[in-house]
Nucleic acid binder design. Structure first.
Lengths: 337, 337
DNA sequence: ATCTTGTTTGTAAGCGCTGTCAAACGTATT
DNA sequence: AATACGTTTGACAGCGCTTACAAACAAGAT
């Protein structure tokens, strides 16, 4: 058990005061003689001294870490989002810390404690089920920049919102299918419907109305939003007369691919499928997945920019950015003969 | 800007000393009258008080967070590993924090600082390129339980190692292909070869020797270990007379699938492919990927157990666990006619 | 009344660091 | 020799919390 080297040890060894050492280490040492400065710097190396950042923070220094809260780290939508955040944050000296919570608000007290302690100087909340809880508890304690992803029902003017044009996304998906001659379209929805999905459903309906076609409520399925969930639901879908499938994320579509394949069905010959997100995998699938593209990188980049802007300028009021969505037509959809 | 509520505020409002409040909040309050206890607890709720965990730690309390360092959060091998860790750690009150660094040791000073500050009470290092650097710097400062994944060249007896039988993995892959009548086997390797890959290469060679067949060095390719990297390298592979491909992880194989498909080649008709890892996606691919399975969940579970064991008993010396590997035969390999 | 004892609460030091302000020193000026 | 000034360094308080240990108090025993 090696004992921790503290700034005091360093000071003692150098024959200097703790203050002096601290100042020099924090590059406020212009006023010190080159000799002392060098001595301290050398000693730091020799002793392998690292400041305790908790002590630094306690003493009033601001660190540059931000927290990212995601619901499911196995869904690559979120890891792509995280990557985008890192790519823009780290070069600016902002260090993200990732917290993987579930989709539901089970055991997040430790999160709250962490955030409430102010060890995070910014928060990017991308976990639908828990964002509200976190905001509620944390906002009142520590006022740090917060941006949420795709949460419509938050109306605090200290919280930025980034979302996507969900209604348009829903409309685009269904319109595409309708244009291809599909009328029996299956919709795969989650068990609980958050606001952004609600909007997409509006989009589905809008498309049907535009085509003056009635949608078939029988074809709405509830599933877990994962590969596994998609795989399971495929068994239900094949029992119906659906010819096309719309999912709420690509991950689910991937599961449906497999489920269908194992049941001897072909995409797109037997079923057209259209996903949502456009994760990298979409293009690596066979057949390549037609999907509604969310600008994941842009969203990550924007999130960081909003945070940084807030950190530099506490006055900015909450923005509500809605990014565009687009149909990426690949190989999983085709005309219904 | 809401001011932070401190324990002092709480104490003042309650007309009690800080000590009393602290004791009660930490459930060491059996010695206090029910009346004071209730008063404090109520006030805590009302004021929304949360202790500052940095201050708590500084004052000597141990928290139960552990750090997980991974090289590439977009590779689902790592997210599956993380999930496994979380699944066994969180129920035991241990909270993992994820750090996504690259494969190389670029900008990890902030990591070192974080770890060296002792804010992590355990470390699980799964990032080949940086594990050594971290260990080197951190171990000497703070002695916390550390387990590394698949790093052969570490020989500190304070560091646990979890690895997989890489040699056997390599042997299995090539033997399978050789058995199917493939002789021209392409190997996709990373640019820098860490110890675990070195072992696999030994396994490849061993298989060839057993079959008394000479391997073709012309068929060794260097690529980035990612979908993108695999996609690119496919263009090189088709220029050769290879009939089978062995990759170092499944992610790369996924990229090769796509590259081959775009070049009009079929798996497994034109090329047999065998991956490594057995990430969940392997089974969702079309055709399903034959691969060498690493017991990812077991590895995560074991990592946590080693850490926890260390936390409870500082004496344990480093273990070196090697887990078995197995061939999962699916649809991407077939007999070479 | 005085002394014990047990119950309930508070005092004070310290965790490792930073920032303010004052002290010490050397040198130049008269 | 006295004064002033710039340069270089250090004392000290405080960040929010915990943890010995000590104090205060009431009640029971003598």
């Amino acid at each position: 058990m090696v004992e921790r080297v503290t700034i005091r040890d360093l000071a003692k060894k150098a024959g200097l005061s703790v203050t002096t050492v601290s100042q020099i280490l924090n590059h406020k040492g212009e006023r010190f003689s080159a000799e002392t400065r060098d001595k301290v710097l050398k000693l730091q190396k020799d002793l392998g001294y690292f400041p305790d950042y908790r002590a630094q923070e306690l003493a009033g220094i601001r660190t540059n870490t931000i927290g990212i809260v995601v619901p499911d780290i196995k869904n690559t939508f979120y890891t792509e989002f995280i990557s985008a955040i890192e790519k823009t944050a780290i070069p600016q000296g902002i260090y993200p810390q990732i917290f993987n919570v579930g989709y539901y608000k089970e055991d997040i007290d430790y999160l709250i404690k962490n955030f409430a302690s102010g060890s995070q100087n910014g928060l990017i909340l991308a976990a639908p089920g828990v964002s509200n809880v976190i905001i509620e508890k944390v906002i009142n304690i520590e006022s740090i920049p917060v941006v949420t992803l795709d949460r419509a029902n938050i109306n605090l003017n200290s919280v930025h919102r980034i979302s996507v044009n969900n209604l348009e996304g829903g409309r685009l998906a269904v319109t595409h299918l309708l244009n291809l001659g599909h009328q029996k379209i299956a919709f795969i929805l989650p068990k609980n419907i958050p606001a952004n999905i609600e909007e997409r459903i509006e989009g589905y309906k809008l498309a049907f109305r535009n085509f003056k076609i009635k949608s078939d409520d029988e074809l709405t399925f509830r599933a877990e939003l994962s590969k596994e969930g998609g795989y399971e639901i495929a068994k239900q879908i094949v029992k119906t007369d659906a010819t096309a499938i719309v999912t709420v994320n690509d991950d689910t579509a991937i599961g449906i691919y497999r489920g269908l394949a194992e049941l001897g069905k072909s995409v797109p010959d037997d079923y057209s499928i259209i996903g949502f997100d456009d994760i990298e995998f979409a293009e690596y699938l066979n057949p390549k997945l037609t999907t509604i593209r969310q600008p994941i990188s842009e969203m990550g980049k924007l999130a960081v920019e909003l945070i940084i802007n807030d950190m530099n300028n506490h006055l900015s009021s909450a923005s509500n950015e809605q990014l565009p969505v687009k149909l990426v037509e690949r190989e999983s959809t085709r005309r219904n003969e």
